[in-house]
Nucleic acid binder design. Structure first.
Lengths: 138, 138
DNA sequence: TCTCTATTGATAATGATTGTCAAAAGCAAT
DNA sequence: ATTGCTTTTGACAATCATTATCAATAGAGA
């Protein structure tokens, strides 16, 4: 049976108060800073449970870290993430949803899940980096 | 200056002969099995270079490993991957390309890159798994 | 061939994540 | 409130992929 501990509540709450995505490590140190003596392993476990229960989104950062975010809605959505400052914008992608389903079905695939995330430089970071030389295609 | 070594060729070739995606570790052991005494670090380096030069695709598996695959074409494309048997189908996604650019631009983002991959169960794995009972909650 | 320097590779280092297991705390019944 | 059974916790060790180190090796042009 699932037991109710303050640790799990703490993680759920900390996650809810976070803008954008956090790593387990990040959440743990945030909690520590707030005075919570919660253990690192516990944070990992709680986040895993949350994600498994569908109460949290998880995605892999380009560096291979697992990032988590509280699911605000039941609705499925994706993210536009600034690779410099971490700013995250939620984006709706009905078109992509349909496309993913269609493509999967057309190839005989079932139970299709998809990973759709856009990384870029947000407006302010772009401005700050104007000196940057842009490469050709891609 | 970039030098031409048999190691790099070996990696390029091994990658080219591989169906679907491989991890660096996987490619390294494949090479070893084939009798090549190439070092692991070198495989990592070569794969990184290939990916950087646009000669290889790379993506993160759900487990957080980096997977690589030889790029058959210059064209940018995405993948439909069977999460059971690893079967990979290349998919074109002009619609998605445009969508990604549009969404990024609409939010002031520049230099948009995107991660778009669809995971699912391929036809045969679906059939093989029909017996599967979906357990309620853990 | 010779020299200069990029590359290699064995291994150590790193860093995130998971496993371990005794101690602590939930929850239900008493 | 107390007892008893189990889940959960947490400090730490263990894993695992990846990266850094650095002396030795081997391209490539002179």
């Amino acid at each position: 049976m699932k037991r109710n501990t303050w640790q799990r509540e703490a993680v759920r709450e900390a996650l809810g108060q976070t803008e954008g995505f956090v790593s387990a490590q990040g959440l743990h140190s945030a909690l520590h800073t707030s005075g919570s003596p919660i253990g690192l392993a516990t944070v990992y476990r709680a986040l895993g449970d949350l994600a498994g229960a569908g109460d949290a989104d998880s995605l892999q950062s380009p560096e291979g870290e697992s990032l988590y975010r509280a699911c605000s809605t039941d609705a499925h959505h994706h993210h536009l993430i600034c690779r410099n400052c971490g700013l995250t914008v939620e984006i709706e992608a009905d078109a992509v949803e349909t496309w993913a389903k269609t493509v999967a079905a057309k190839n005989g695939f079932t139970q299709a899940a998809h990973v759709v995330d856009v990384f870029g430089l947000c407006a302010s970071c772009t401005q700050a980096a104007t000196v940057h030389v842009v490469g050709p295609q891609q």
